[in-house]
């Protein structure tokens, strides 16, 4: 029987970056979520927001092992930064979401990257939402949100296949760091497409 691994991945990013959408699109089943109606200025952006955390899982299989990715979403607003510290404990990888169309939020993404980077030196993938066909925006984000050792990808959070591939990119990054060698030959796919 192939070995099985459980990994904890934190999905972070500014308010309204698409964290909940991404986890919902990629997870195998329904999420455990903590949405509350927005008020004040945030209500103009969207109707509800994550105030605690989200949790969902994604099963991944390869020829030689199986993995369960435990996906944890955190609130994006600074006032909930205590949840970043709580949820960040024991994470194996960080997926940082950046919104290609809202450059004014990129500085907040950088702040979050620094916050989580101080908690743990886990592998990071910076995912640029709405940039699957815009590599030039991904390059801009690479400079605006510099995270040492991170990989940068453009993708669409609402597309389940895209969202899962983005998480697989992080998984490969994590496996490479574990083995300290490229995992280029490793082929992984979601267990239940």
């Amino acid at each position: 029987m192939n070995p099985h691994f459980d990994f904890k991945i934190v999905v972070a990013g500014p308010f309204a970056a698409g964290k909940t959408t991404m986890i919902a699109a990629s997870a195998d089943g329904p999420l455990v979520g903590t949405e509350a109606p927005t008020s004040g200025g945030e209500a103009a952006v969207k109707a509800t927001t994550t105030v605690g955390m989200e949790y969902g899982t994604l099963a991944v299989a390869s020829d030689s092992f199986s993995v369960e990715l435990n996906l944890y979403g955190v609130p994006g607003q600074e006032r909930f930064s205590f949840m970043w510290d709580i949820v960040g404990v024991g994470m194996d990888g960080l997926f940082l979401l950046v919104d290609a169309d809202r450059p004014e939020t990129w500085a907040t993404s950088a702040t979050m990257a620094a916050h989580f980077g101080a908690l743990s030196s886990t592998p990071v993938v910076v995912g640029v939402n709405r940039a699957s066909t815009r590599p030039e925006v991904v390059e801009q984000v690479r400079h605006a949100v510099p995270v040492p050792g991170a990989r940068y990808i453009g993708f669409e959070v609402i597309d389940p296949q895209d969202a899962r591939n983005a998480l697989l990119e992080l998984l490969l990054h994590m496996l490479e760091q574990m083995n300290d060698e490229p995992a280029a030959q490793t082929s992984v796919q979601v267990a239940t497409p």
């Binding site: 979520g33 105030v51 006032r79």
Partner: peptide, 17 residues
């Protein structure tokens, strides 16, 4: 006040779950 309000919202939402 502000940190308390934020913590209450998180805890209350998790309590609801």
């Amino acid at each position: 006040q502000k940190p308390t309000a934020a913590m209450v919202a998180s805890a209350f939402a998790l309590g609801g779950r």
